[in-house]
């Protein structure tokens, strides 16, 4: 898995309780309060959206809310920067396709 269990300097990562969310309809687990992008990464999800013009895949790039490449549709809302939006129980996360949810 992509999670660090124990770190030689930082010890065991301090994470929130386990919560369930969905990604494109598929149920996934993550830690409450961690950025949505981190929960997706831990689940092996690389593609967050497809661009409008060229339909190219994009994912995490800056991870601090600046580049806006990781935006997705979250709970029906477009262009949510998943790298800085905390994960909550029951969130509905969808791949963004241009400016709509994938398959919408």
């Amino acid at each position: 898995m992509n999670r660090i269990e124990e770190h030689p300097i930082l010890g065991e990562p301090q994470k929130g309780r386990e919560v369930t969310f969905t990604f494109d309809g598929k149920e996934m687990k993550g830690c409450e309060g961690e950025p949505i992008a981190m929960a997706l990464k831990a689940n092996g999800v690389m593609i967050h959206r497809y661009t409008k013009k060229e339909h190219k895949p994009r994912g995490i790039f800056c991870a601090i809310g600046r580049c806006t490449d990781c935006v997705m549709v979250v709970n029906g809302k477009l262009n949510v920067r998943t790298c800085i939006t905390p994960l909550e129980e029951g969130m509905v996360v969808q791949t963004q396709d241009g400016v709509t949810a994938k398959g919408a």
Partner: peptide
């Protein structure tokens, strides 16, 4: 360079040192 998996060094630090994600 726009492919998922190309990231900034800061992103790598954020993932592993703040969130415990490789």
């Amino acid at each position: 360079w726009t492919l998922p998996g190309v990231i900034g060094a800061g992103a790598a630090q954020t993932m592993m040192n703040l969130h415990g994600i490789k």
